[in-house]
Simulated scan of single mutants.
Amino acid sequence: MHGGPGPARPRLREAGERHMTAPADPRALRFGYGTNGLADLRLDDALGLLADLGYDGVGLTLDHMHLDPYAPDLAARTRRLAHRLAALGLEVTVETGARYVLDPRRKHGPTLLDAAPEDRRRRTDLLLRAVRVAADLGAHAVHCFSGIVPPGTDRDTAWDRLAASLAPVLDAAATAGVPLAVEPEPGHLLATLADFHHLRGLLGDPAPLGLTLDIGHCQCLEPLPPADCVRAAAPWLRHAQIEDMRRGVHDHLPFGEGEIDFPPVLAALADIGYRGLTVVELPRHSHAGPHHAERSLPFLRRATADTPAPRSATPEGSTV
């Protein structure tokens, strides 16, 4: 990309080829890249790029430019996308963090915590659509988040709204056989692993409820180091996001620009037997998305090669 033509890119994979060439190592991690970091590309072009670069999958954010969940013929468009993913050998997790897909004037609004019931229902509807899309794509999970507590709302009320809003989504996820993976997000009601466990308690620990663990968020605000967060999250981990970050600053950074020591984190993911996608999450770097996609995968592979030997056996209940 810089300073000359460089080495030739590998050809795109044919349908089914990945299953014949996948590594035999059961600890091998599978890496993806989030389409929210490739927002300036058409979805088909983004998928072709990721397959060309050697990624195992994609974190698909449902948005107006990438499989718009509110445009006509969603089911037909989803079927076409499923064929494209299969042809490229790409796995998928469905993400729902689009900034303005529901409200063109309010970032990430409405949320599951809003005061108006009709606003909460709009967010729930998006998640129900995401579950249907995920089932049709054979996705690992559907990602979601709680939202920020609205002004004037006490936290107990916010938790009640969150639990009630997620109940129909969890029912749909159970029927579809696709886990719902809630992400602790800095500044949100559900911001930490402890908050995730609070939600589990409120809901009665339903089987479809899982966890999205963002490694950068662990560095940002969790009391445990990121690798220990991975091990603590093992029984509920259904989706992983990864980027660099600094302590106390919620800013998704390209690898090498933050403070995270990645080999122990990747070793922890391998040790617990995590077999979902680990998706690079750089939404604020979409203007240079192809560049960051190209450099991120070699970084993760080098960090994986540097991982220490397994510390312990896979914990009981970890995701596979």
Results as ranks from 00 to 15, higher is better:
Leu112Lys: 07
Arg9Ile: 00
Ala28Phe: 01
Ala194Arg: 03
Ala233Leu: 08
Ala141His: 12
Arg302Val: 04
His252Met: 05
Ile148Met: 13
Cys229Trp: 03
Ala164Trp: 00
Ala172Asn: 12
Glu118Gly: 05
Asp171Leu: 08
Met1Asp: 13
Gly16Leu: 07
Leu127Lys: 11
Pro206Trp: 01
Asp205Ile: 02
Leu49His: 11
Ala115Cys: 00
Asp68Cys: 06
Ala309Trp: 04
Pro308Gln: 11
Thr175Phe: 00
Pro235Thr: 02
Asp68Met: 05
Pro104Val: 03
Leu199Pro: 06
Pro23Thr: 04
Pro186Thr: 03
Leu90Asp: 09
Leu90Cys: 12
Thr111Cys: 02
Phe145Pro: 00
Leu60Val: 05
Asp103Gln: 04
Val320Cys: 11
Arg99Cys: 04
Ala268Cys: 10
Arg13Leu: 15
Trp159Met: 07
Leu209Tyr: 05
Leu62Ile: 03
Asp195Thr: 01
Asp214Cys: 03
Ala163Gln: 04
Leu38Ile: 09
Pro5Tyr: 03
Val94Ser: 09
Leu221Gly: 15
Val230Met: 09
Asp114Gln: 08
Asp40Val: 01
Ala46Gln: 03
Thr212Ala: 06
Ala75Asn: 07
Gln241Leu: 13
Gly210Gln: 07
Glu259Ser: 13
Gly138Cys: 09
Ser312Glu: 15
Asp261Pro: 07
Asp63Gly: 14
Ala75Leu: 07
Asp73Gln: 14
Ala173Trp: 02
Ala163Cys: 09
Tyr70Asn: 10
Leu113Asn: 10
Ser318Ile: 04
His197Asn: 01
Gly138Leu: 08
His19Phe: 13
Pro283Tyr: 06
Arg122Trp: 00
Pro263His: 11
His66Gly: 11
Ser318Glu: 07
Asp214Ala: 02
Ile215Ala: 10
Gly276Ser: 09
Asp63Phe: 02
Leu12Gly: 14
Val149Lys: 07
Leu190Trp: 00
Ala240Lys: 03
Ala227Glu: 15
Leu88Ser: 07
Asp73Ala: 15
Ala76Leu: 12
Leu221Thr: 01
Val101Asp: 08
Arg122His: 06
Ala234Pro: 04
Pro104Met: 09
Ala232Tyr: 00
Gly152Thr: 06
Ala288Asn: 12
Gly273Lys: 11
Asp56His: 15
Leu112Asp: 06
Asp52Ala: 14
Glu281Tyr: 03
Gln241Ser: 11
Arg295Ala: 13
Ala309Arg: 14
Asp44Gln: 14
His140Gln: 13
Ile260Asp: 10
Thr96Asp: 05
Asp261Met: 02
Gly256Ser: 12
Arg11Glu: 14
Ala141Trp: 08
Asp156Leu: 01
Met20Cys: 09
Arg295Cys: 09
Glu118Asn: 03
Leu253Asp: 10
Ile272Lys: 10
Arg123Asn: 11
Ala293Phe: 10
Arg42Cys: 07
Gly89Val: 09
Leu170Tyr: 05
Thr319Asp: 15
Thr192His: 08
Asp52Pro: 00
Pro283Ala: 09
Leu224Lys: 04
Arg132Phe: 00
Arg77Glu: 12
Cys220Met: 12
Arg311Gly: 15
His64Ala: 15
Ile215Tyr: 09
Arg247Asp: 06
